[in-house]
Design a protein around this nucleic acid. Sequence first.
RNA 1: GCCCCCAUCGUCUAGAGGCCUAGGACACGGCCCUUUCAAGGCUGAGAUCAGCGGUUCGAAUCCGCUUGGGGGUACCA
Length: 502
Amino acid sequence: MTDIRVRIAPSPTGPLHLGTARTALFNFLFARHTGGTFIFRLEDTDQARGTEAFELEILEGLHWLGIRWDEGPAVGGEPERGAYGPYRQMQRLTDYAEAAARLLAEDKAYYCYCSPTELEAVRKEQEAAHEPTRYNGRCADLSATERAAFEAEGRKPVVRFRIPTDRLIVFDDVVRGHMEINTNALGGDLVIVRSDGNPLYHFTVAVDDAAMKISHVIRGEDHLSNTPKHILLFEAMGAPIPQFGHLPLILNPDRSKMSKRKTQTAVMAYRAEGFIPEAYVNYLSLLGWSTGTEEEVLSLDELCERFDLSTVNRAGAVFDRERLEWLNGQWIRRLAPEDLIERLRPFLQVEVDAGRFDWIPSDAEIRALLPVVQERLPRLNAVGELIGFLFVKNLDPDTALLVPKRWDAATALAGLTAARVTIADAGRVTFDAENLEAPLRSLIEDRGWKVGDLFMAIRVAVTGRTATPPLFDTMVALGYERTLARLDRAIEKLAAQVTPNP
RNA sequence: GCCCCCAUCGUCUAGAGGCCUAGGACACGGCCCUUUCAAGGCUGAGAUCAGCGGUUCGAAUCCGCUUGGGGGUACCA
């Protein structure tokens, strides 16, 4: 039995993409489930600027999700590990050159001098004739003199790999089942090395996957049609052909292929919004796969345990942010209190930095609030919105909101004035929720008010908002002095409105 | 143009010939709980299983066609 070896091979040319993360996850789950090896390979041949920053982001993003590799390059201070390195394409250039030279020597590939314009013309003709477009093989059997003539013209050749004519390539895709593709649909002999000497993608993957003894190539469906090319390449190199598993694509809400324009695709943007990795990984795993049971809230460990590549769906899946948010809430509620506090800290700092908090809450302050906060948090970054009113020095409640809908300003003023006395009185000894609620309720009963009305007036006076965590916990968190001060401020504002200055 | 893939509630999905007058979850409506907001519980609406033809005693499940969607087809990855 061959060892199971899978890989994720991102190109560090942009922020970590949601689709890359999903592919990485499925590979990782498959490796963990089967006891195989998960390999991280950097396809860094693109010399774009900022590459190093993106490498770090990819590493950080995958680690954030809990995805660790068994073999991979040195990146972000991590040393290279694994016996099949190097794991960066930039360091494998000689491998590609050697592989190309070997194919050339065995006449499995040849130099082609056709110019882009000539190629384009052929393509156009074929399209017009309703024929499959494919390289016409003009340079497939050049004589030495013909080659010399092209060279003399100054033409720089590409290397083309011979694709057989009219042969059926057959493979059993782990998720899609039996596949048969005729080589005539492959576009003719494949360019594997550019005229500038740089190897092309289809070639490098095959070389690398062979060298790294990848047993299962698990990737997006967009590579399905190109798989025969890879199989042919493996064959030509005398390498065993791995198993393939093509994952369904992730779609925009309008069912087109997911794009940055229509869906937020940067994994780190989700982290910045306060999605937690437990939820994110859980959600990603359910895009195109399910356990087959009704369980949906699953930890990474549980996912590793249950994952089965052969039950992955074949149809594309629309990315549904609402469902992600729901899962996020589920996972936030499952967090241990101290853990939640820890994770909330950076988001509290964001509020301070943005000037929305006047000071950073202490752990003790947050801990006291946690029971009422935890079940109200859809995302970590909602914390400011939820309890921000506690961490501002001056609150200026909207007078209109201070007056509950069934009341007028005078009643609200009377209500708050009476409540102020009751609260001051009740809180003198111990300022806790128990002590506050009973006297306020009997006050309400005496005056014949509605519970909701007075409580709402107090709520707005003390928090400035109509939707808050439970009132009494909120007041306790605010503290005796500050609660009274805010009530006084509200009373003052209402009084000014009820008896305007002459 | 050519090739390939896919098709169950708005969305993610269960379903591998009778258990399906199609189950769950998100979102949505109602009720309960309740000081607001959540969370939670209950409940409702929502799918002629894309359409049409077969095969079969019997089809969401098998086959064919059509339609629709997606992907590929580069000296991109």
